[in-house]
Amino acid sequence: MNAAVPAPRKLRLATTSLAGCFGCHMSFLDIDERLLDLVDLIEFDRSPLTDIKHCGPCDIGLIEGGLCNAENIHVLREFRRNCKVLIAMGACAVNGGLPAQRNHIDLGQCLQEVYLTQPGLVGGQVPNDPELPLPLDKVHPIHEVVRIDYFIPGCPPSGDAIWKFLTDLLKGRTPRLGHPLLHFD
């Protein structure tokens, strides 16, 4: 039986950066020419690469960054609703990371100092435009707000790690990074 097997449906992939630095996305681009192999297997939905503003039904969602404001949570929930598999990519998504270093500072005090009482400020005001998302009192890792299926540690995870993870997933294997790709020093 040599009848041509129909090409499998391309999987849809969405990515976003919440309270992150886009470093994980830069690392994602480090898969370099393998990006061409990747687009044979997947098509992008919402992602900085496509500039699509809202996520539609997807197979895989990659989330960079933790949660520092209300918008982060709305976006994360949109991803969770639409993605069959949701992945926390990088230290900020997994643990809160660098932004979570503000967690020991009281938000009220912080806003007060920055916008109202800092020396040299005259007539300061805490920004209150409804367009601006409100900051959360603490920065949270994303698994505290929605169910997360997989975690890729690293700050950032290497391009190789992201490639290995995605190809495992695309081939139907449970992703396993193994020691070299989890070794950070």
Partner: peptide
Amino acid sequence: FEPAFDLDEALAGARRMTGRDDPG
């Protein structure tokens, strides 16, 4: 899944500081 903390409460400090109370 449910969040591990009260989302609306987590915005209370910022609401107080900004005086906002809109749906957003």
